[in-house]
Amino acid sequence: MRPGAGSILLRYLLLAGLAIFFIAPLLMMFLGSLKADHRVLLESGSLTAFLPHELSLQNYSDVFRRTDFLRFFFNSLFITGCVVICGLVVNALAAYAFARLQWRGRDLIFNLVLALMILPFEAIAVPLFYGASILGLRDTYAVQILPFIANAFAIYLFYSFFIGIPKELEEAARIDGASTLRIFFSIIAPNAKPVFASVAILTFLTWWGSYLWPTMVTIGPTVRPLPVAIASFYTLPPLQWGDILAFGVMMVSPVLLLFVIFQRWFVAGVASSAMKG
């Protein structure tokens, strides 16, 4: 199947057409964030939406003036960081015990953990909300972090990777009398960087963008994360599109930065979720 010159041209034309559909909203966001508020909507209906002219950072300083952006940014960073880091440790250790240690009840419990993967968060949101309400835990960091550290799918991803690491690597250390934890941190973890990266990226993406749960449990701005903050900023009068887009750019920039640097890992991480099932 050698494609001819015509077919290659056709391919590029199709790709370019599709690229416009993907790039137009992104370009509009970036350029709009740099234009005066009244011009954003006015120009969005013409090609001037995509022309960089008369740009300024005014909207960005307006965001800091009109809303407590740094607090929301910190909240998102703190919540996501805690879920990612604690999640990596807790889930990887559990997966190691399932993949490598011999203990009574292991297979039964592991199958129960796998069965939990079918439960989407929406299937537990209501009782969790009820629990958080009667315990008076709404509007806290804890309620946005603790429930999401242990994750059946992360355990499954770690397990699938650990099971493929040659046993010989551990045997020598075990004969030397190294403890299980020591073996895990000095032998398993260094050999399992790809799965740590995949799980970290998947978890980070999920919680950086998470909206449903924080919108249910946060009340004031104190522990409000970015997704809830942009939704409420979007309805804060007067409607200033430039400011809203500047908020959006700042909200997505850490993810984009990581994405550009670690693109290979992002794609691998997301694709690894396809091994499920």
Partner: peptide
């Protein structure tokens, strides 16, 4: 790229 964008945004 849009996959990494939060849905709220």
């Amino acid at each position: 790229m849009p996959v990494v964008f939060p849905m709220s945004l």
